[in-house]
Each structure stands twice: as structure tokens, then as C-alpha cells.
Design a protein around this nucleic acid. Structure first.
Lengths: 223, 223
DNA sequence: GATATATTCAAGACGTTACTTGAGGAGTGA
DNA sequence: TCACTCCTCAAGTAACGTCTTGAATATATC
């Protein structure tokens, strides 16, 4: 028991899983898939890569066990291997945020100035949803809302928000949410809403974290 | 805000951190460093690589922010960037164990048959330590015991165990522990103790998990 | 059974990674 | 200051990873 060669092989296997996450495009795929299952075409569009290359990256993720597939007619849907993969992704982001030197700058460059963007925590939002004095807006793409969303949230994708402001009940605080702490959709939504004179905040993280904390969710699109 | 190029750069940065873990030798380094700080010479020996190559891998880990250094005289000590790195490593192992196809075989090849090896959980052990009816043996190398160990544990490195059985008080259950679920030292210790007629079990995981669950620890070697 | 659509595979160009060997820099103690 | 230890750096080589292009496969529909 315990010789060098088999130990190396075992740790190489752990390394394989980390290596699967060790590419920006695959990391983006995991981030998108943490929202729910999607097919290759959509995923290619989300990460801005060719379908062939996206398929290639999905294959590495599948080999490492991080994603699984399901066929529905002519399409193949990919989803995370389990909720634990989402937790791993979240842990990786946390460590990167607290230790990686330039990550703050990169995040600031991508997300912009968040200093004037009020945030609300998960637990506080859960209380206010229960109290019924807040409207929750899911600004992610419709496919992600359908795959799963915060219970009671309405879907207004960020691209449509400006034209659908009248769907929001007047004189109620708005909370926008999207994919997670490194997603700009909710930021953009809050900025837009505030320019239009609405009281708006963003959920501090996103749907996957809400779900992983066992807070109430729903699936399917509104009729 | 939110253009393709900066988004790619941000996710590439997350990928960099994962890539740092994406090598078997670096994974082994993290596993060893989760026990406490060590210098390059020791680390090279632990992972069975040249000092130059070990230094090279430590550099990648440091660049990714996963480890930090401290100079003491002529030696340079490496340690994890924070406890969160140990948590990330633990999450990675969990996901690998539950999703990676061949990991079970590799673990079995390295660890051997564990079916006849009784384990004890963290919380149960904490209770029995408090009750005082168990002797806890740390079978890791002395440097790791010194860097931190379960409060009340005695240090008998696995290589010395056969010759130091008389140090164990008679007629008391023994619990051996080491680095974690993928470490063989405690397994070997339990097998040896049982051959010698002692009631022995292994702690289900290891020191880093004990510590990260805020259970009592001590540092320094016994006088 | 033929066609259309969605996805994967194969080959190749190019950069990156892992490890070895040998030289070099930083600190210690006589 | 000098020799010594410990660690890092540089150069070199073989292997691997990424992405593009074009072809092949699998399923559904007509």
C-alpha cells in the first residue's frame, strides 16, 4: 500500500478534475451551467466560441465528471454533474477573489464601479419576499429562468428591461438578480432602474447560491 | 460594462487558479501544506521530485495566490494562502471522488482494502477525547505534528510505530489519524495495531478537516 | 429511405507545460 | 571574507493544450 507510483496516479486524477476547470472558457461554461441545463448551440453563443470548440471543451468537462448530458430529440443538453460542482466553482471563485493578485482589477474592469450599487443579502431578501413588499426580477436569459429561478421572481431579460418597465408594480422596491457575483446583468438592471427613478438593489450573489442554500425556487416559465 | 474581452480575461483569471491545482504534483503539495508549513527540501522529498522542480511548482502555486512564503534564516517556508485554500482542496477532492470515473479504482489501488478498517467520525472522537477514554495517535511526520495537531494527540510517526507500542497506555481504544481521507499512514497504523491485538480505528478524515471544523488543536512538539 | 439539423471527430498550427541539468543569488557562521 | 547551505532561475526538450477548418456521425422529420 502506498507506493509512489499509485500515489502519483491518484493525485494526477485529482489534478485532472482541477485541470478541467483550468481554462477560462470551461470556467465560463461551468458558470453558465450552474444556472441550469443548456444545449451546445446556446453554450457556444454564451462563451463566444465556435460550436466545435465548445463541444471540445464540454467533452473535457464531461470526462472529468463535472458535467453530464441528456438527449432530447435532436439536441443534447448539458448540466452540472451535481450541486457539489456548483459549490466547487463557488469555492474556486472565493479563493481566487481573496488571493489572486490582479483579480480585483479584472473584476472592476468587467463589472464597472459597484460602489454606488446597493446590494441585498440572501436572507434579507427571503424575509422581504415572505413579507411581500418587494418585487424580484430575474434578468437572465429566458432559458435560465425556465431551468430554475427564485420562487416568486418575474422574468425580464436584461435586453428587454427598458421596454418592460411597466410590468413592474409601482411604488415597490425592486431587487434584480442574475448568475452570481461576477455577472453584470443585475448591475445593469439596477443602474437602469435607478435612472428611471425606481428604488432598486441587486442580490449580492445569484441564483446558484440561492439554490445551494436551499431557499425556495421554482422551475418553468410563467404562462 | 461587460464586453467579451474583459469577461474572458476575468474568467481566465479564475482558470489560472484552477490550473494551479491542475497537476498531480501541485495537488500533492497542497495536500501536504494543508498539514502546515514546510520548507522546499522537505516538500521535494514528500512529492518525490527534484528540488528544482518542486521549487518550480511552488512558484506556480504562489503566483496563483494559493501559497505564501516566509523566510527563516537560510530556509524558506511555504504555507497555504489561507484556510479557504484547504476548503477548496477538500471540495475538489469531494467532487473528484463522486464524479470521476476511475478515481475509486485509483484510490483502492493506493489505499488498499479499507472494508475491514473501522473508522470514527470527528464529532464522536471529540466526545471521546472529552470523556478521556481514548488515546489519539498522530502518525504523520514529526514536522506536521509540530505545525499543528489534534489537542491531546501524541506523536508516533508511522515509521516508528512498531517500536513505540509501549508508549500507548494499555487497555484503551486507540484512534490513529493522519493527513486526510487519501492518506495511508493511519490505515497502516490501524492494521499494525490490530495485528498486535489493540482495539484501533482511524479518524475518517484527517487533521486539516478537524482544524477547519474548529475542533481543538495544539501546536508545537511535546517536551 | 432521403434530407436536414445538431453535434462530434480528425488533422494541423501554434503556444504552453513539465521536468532535467547546471549555474547563480541570498543568507549563515567561522 | 570565505565557504557552505538552501533555494531559485535559465536553457533545453518532449509532451500536451487550444483553437480552426472541414468532414463524419447520429437523430428527427418528411
Amino acid at each position: 500500500m502506498g507506493d509512489r507510483q499509485t500515489k502519483d496516479a491518484l493525485f494526477d486524477a485529482f489534478g485532472e478534475v482541477a485541470k478541467a476547470l483550468g481554462n477560462g472558457r470551461r470556467a465560463e461554461l461551468i458558470d453558465v451551467l450552474a444556472q441550469g441545463e443548456r444545449h451546445v448551440d446556446e453554450l457556444a453563443d454564451e462563451i463566444g466560441q465556435s460550436v466545435a470548440n465548445t463541444s471540445f471543451h464540454l467533452r473535457s468537462l464531461a470526462t472529468a465528471g463535472l458535467v453530464t448530458t441528456r438527449r432530447d430529440g435532436t439536441r443534447i443538453y448539458y448540466r452540472l454533474g451535481s450541486d457539489r460542482v456548483a459549490e466547487l466553482w463557488s469555492a474556486l471563485r472565493d479563493v481566487a477573489a481573496s488571493h489572486h493578485q490582479q483579480l480585483d482589477e479584472l473584476a472592476a474592469a468587467y463589472l464597472g464601479d459597484r460602489s454606488r450599487l446597493d446590494q441585498i443579502g440572501r436572507d434579507e431578501l427571503a424575509e422581504r419576499i415572505a413579507a411581500g413588499d418587494v418585487v424580484v426580477v430575474d434578468v437572465r436569459p429566458p432559458a435560465e429562468y425556465t431551468a430554475g429561478h427564485i420562487a416568486g421572481a418575474i422574468s425580464i431579460p436584461i435586453d428587454n428591461l427598458a421596454d418592460h418597465l411597466q410590468e413592474l408594480p409601482p411604488d415597490v422596491d425592486v431587487v434584480a438578480y442574475c448568475r452570481g457575483p461576477y455577472c453584470v446583468y443585475a448591475d445593469d438592471a439596477v443602474r437602469l432602474l435607478r435612472r428611471r427613478g425606481r428604488a432598486a438593489r441587486r442580490l449580492e450573489d445569484g441564483y446558484p447560491e440561492w439554490r445551494n442554500h436551499r431557499l425556495p425556487v421554482e422551475t418553468g416559465s410563467a404562462s
